[in-house]
């Protein structure tokens, strides 16, 4: 396991470098937007990656609520933290692109607002984990994750009622995209997923070790009480 990590890290670095080269130099320039469009190679794959991790967090939270398995909680923490990082990338690159193309930094559109609310919910999830102590943290956090998952569709529908400004999804939404662009998109997504997965793996291991340390400490404290009292 320990030897596997540097190999995977090196492969991920190569993939990230290659996909950067593809996105910046190989992918054709957009006819309407010029080079500024290239930010979508970071924006969209980050969004997909963030959603993958948020979904992982939700599933792990439900599993934790049913099974009370500490490993599921470790998955949930790691996924939430990495999801928030990728979601932050989405929220930063979006306005950078929107300013030259739409002429505005931000608008209360369906996808923008849903993503922002999702980000807010998961930041509050991390704050809750930080501020609660002891063995109850996983349960409280898992309950919040379920609430968050229920909330997002409601946010989506409530804003969907208004006119939406965000470009329609070009993949699976009936739009058309140059196959070379799609190729670079998928390449970037694969690279981000590998990178996210790698960080996730390490974070998960760290969390499991943390749990073991806490368990040992609690056990030692019990033994101390037993021997003195």
């Amino acid at each position: 396991m320990k030897r596997l990590f540097p190999i995977l890290a090196a492969l991920t670095a190569i993939l990230l470098g290659y996909s950067f080269y593809q996105a910046m130099f190989v992918a054709p320039t957009d006819q309407m937007q010029g080079d500024v469009y290239r930010i979508i190679y970071y924006h969209v794959p980050s969004a997909w990656t963030a959603f993958v991790f948020f979904l992982t967090n939700f599933i792990a939270s439900v599993v934790y609520l049913i099974r009370r398995n500490p490993k599921a909680d470790a998955v949930a923490v790691a996924a939430a933290e990495i999801g928030v990082v990728f979601c932050t990338v989405v929220l930063v690159t979006g306005p950078l692109w929107a300013r030259p193309v739409w002429g505005i930094w931000w608008t209360w559109d369906v996808r923008l607002t849903s993503t922002l609310v999702l980000w807010l919910i998961y930041v509050s999830y991390l704050v809750l984990r930080r501020f609660s102590s002891g063995g109850q943290t996983p349960v409280l956090a898992a309950a919040l994750a379920v609430f968050g998952a229920l909330d997002v569709p409601l946010v989506y529908f409530s804003i969907w009622f208004f006119r939406t400004q965000h470009p329609q999804p070009v993949v699976g939404g009936g739009g058309s995209i140059d196959p070379r662009m799609l190729h670079v998109w998928m390449l970037n997504w694969a690279a981000f997923l590998c990178f996210g997965g790698l960080v996730f793996w390490q974070r998960y291991r760290l969390e499991v070790m943390q749990q073991e340390v806490e368990e040992t400490q609690a056990l030692e404290a019990l033994l101390d009480v037993g021997s003195t009292g």
Binding site: L120, I121, V127, S133
Partner: peptide
């Protein structure tokens, strides 16, 4: 109620979920 500084925690949890 189960967290440190609980008075601040409530709005931090409640407001994002209450947006819709």
């Amino acid at each position: 109620l189960r967290t440190r500084s609980r008075e601040i925690m409530l709005p931090l949890l409640l407001f994002p979920i209450s947006i819709p």
